[in-house]
């Protein structure tokens, strides 16, 4: 941060500070969600906050502080990489969580996957391997 900032520098520094603090709060929210939510599926919901929005705010703060344009494509690539990998790993974890009967199934309001899984397990048709 610029010491004795005035004018536009001040605006950029305040924006950076807000982005950093809110991004850190996303991590804290994920930790609180991990501790307080009852089962794995709802914890997965909380765990994605620092990975997507938190990382976006942090990278935007870096880009604001560097004061150059060439750094933005690198930051965008880093963020898009996280955007591509987070749903895949969440899908894999959720799939194996369902298959290994994690969580409280009675708390679900609707379970559309169970019929598909039972049909595939019965071998009546080659259902999608979810």
């Amino acid at each position: 941060m610029t010491p004795d900032a005035t004018g536009l520098d001040m605006v950029i520094d305040v924006t950076t500070a807000v982005f950093l603090v809110v991004g850190a709060l996303m991590s804290l929210g994920a930790a609180v969600g991990l501790l307080r939510f009852p089962d794995l599926m709802s914890r997965m919901h909380a765990a994605t906050k620092p990975q997507v929005l938190g990382l976006f705010l942090m990278l935007a703060a870096i880009g604001l502080q560097m004061r150059t344009w060439w750094v933005w494509p690198i930051l965008v690539v880093a963020w898009i990489f996280q955007l591509l990998t987070a749903p895949v790993s969440a899908h894999m974890v959720g799939r194996s969580a369902y298959r290994t009967k994690h969580g409280h199934r009675e708390k679900l309001t609707k379970d559309e996957l169970e019929a598909v899984v039972q049909r595939a397990a019965a071998g009546q048709e080659p259902g999608p391997d979810r």
């Binding site: 991590s27 991990l34 794995l40 765990a47 990382l55 942090m58 703060a61």
Partner: peptide, 24 residues
């Protein structure tokens, strides 16, 4: 799986700390 998810969050927090260092 709870532990895997929590360690994933821990990695994200570590990345956030690195980003704070870079921005500051």
């Amino acid at each position: 799986l709870d532990r895997v998810l929590a360690s994933d969050v821990l990695l994200a927090i570590l990345g956030a700390a690195l980003a704070v260092d870079m921005a500051m």
